[in-house]
Amino acid sequence: MAELLTDQIVRRASAGSRAQAFFWDDQIKGFALRVTNRGTKAFVLDYRIKGRQRRITIGNYPDWTVAAARDRAKTMKREVDLGGDPMGARHEDRQAATMQDLWDRYRDEHLVHKTDRSRKDEAAMWESLILPALGREKVRDMSTDQIEQLHWDISEKRGTPVRANRVLEVVRKSMNLAIRWGWRSENPVTGIKKNPEQKRERYLSSDEIARLNAALEEHPEQVSADAIRILMLTGARRGEVLNATWDMFDLEKGIWTMPSAHTKQRRSHRVPLATSAVELLRRLRETSKGRYVFAGKSPDHPLTDIKRTWKSLCQKAGIENARIHDLRHSFASILVSQGASLPLIGAMLGHTQVQTTQRYAHLYDEPLRGAAELVSRAINGTSEKPGRGE
Rank of each mutant, 00 (worst) to 15 (best):
L5E: 03
D7F: 02
Q8F: 08
S14G: 02
G16R: 00
R18P: 06
A32D: 03
R34L: 02
R34Q: 06
T36Y: 05
G39Q: 05
T40D: 10
T40K: 11
K41D: 06
R48V: 10
K50S: 11
Q53I: 14
R54D: 05
R54S: 08
G59Q: 02
N60L: 06
W64S: 07
A67I: 02
A67Q: 10
R70P: 03
R78K: 14
V80K: 01
D81A: 08
E92L: 14
Q95A: 14
L102Q: 07
Y106M: 02
E109K: 11
V112P: 12
T115V: 12
D121N: 15
I130A: 00
P132Q: 01
D153S: 08
R158H: 15
T160E: 11
R166S: 10
L168I: 05
E169M: 12
L177E: 13
A178F: 00
W181G: 01
R184Q: 03
Y203M: 13
S205A: 09
I209L: 13
L212H: 03
A214F: 12
Q222T: 15
V223F: 10
I228P: 01
I230C: 01
L231M: 00
E240G: 04
A244T: 01
D247M: 13
K253N: 00
I255F: 10
P259F: 11
P272S: 05
A274F: 07
S276K: 05
L281E: 13
R285Q: 10
K289L: 06
F294N: 00
A295K: 00
G296N: 06
D300L: 11
D305C: 01
R308E: 08
K311E: 07
K311F: 07
S312K: 05
L313C: 04
L313G: 02
A317P: 04
E320L: 06
I324W: 13
L342G: 08
L344P: 10
L344F: 14
V354A: 09
Y360F: 12
G370K: 15
V375C: 07
G381L: 03
G381C: 04
R388H: 10
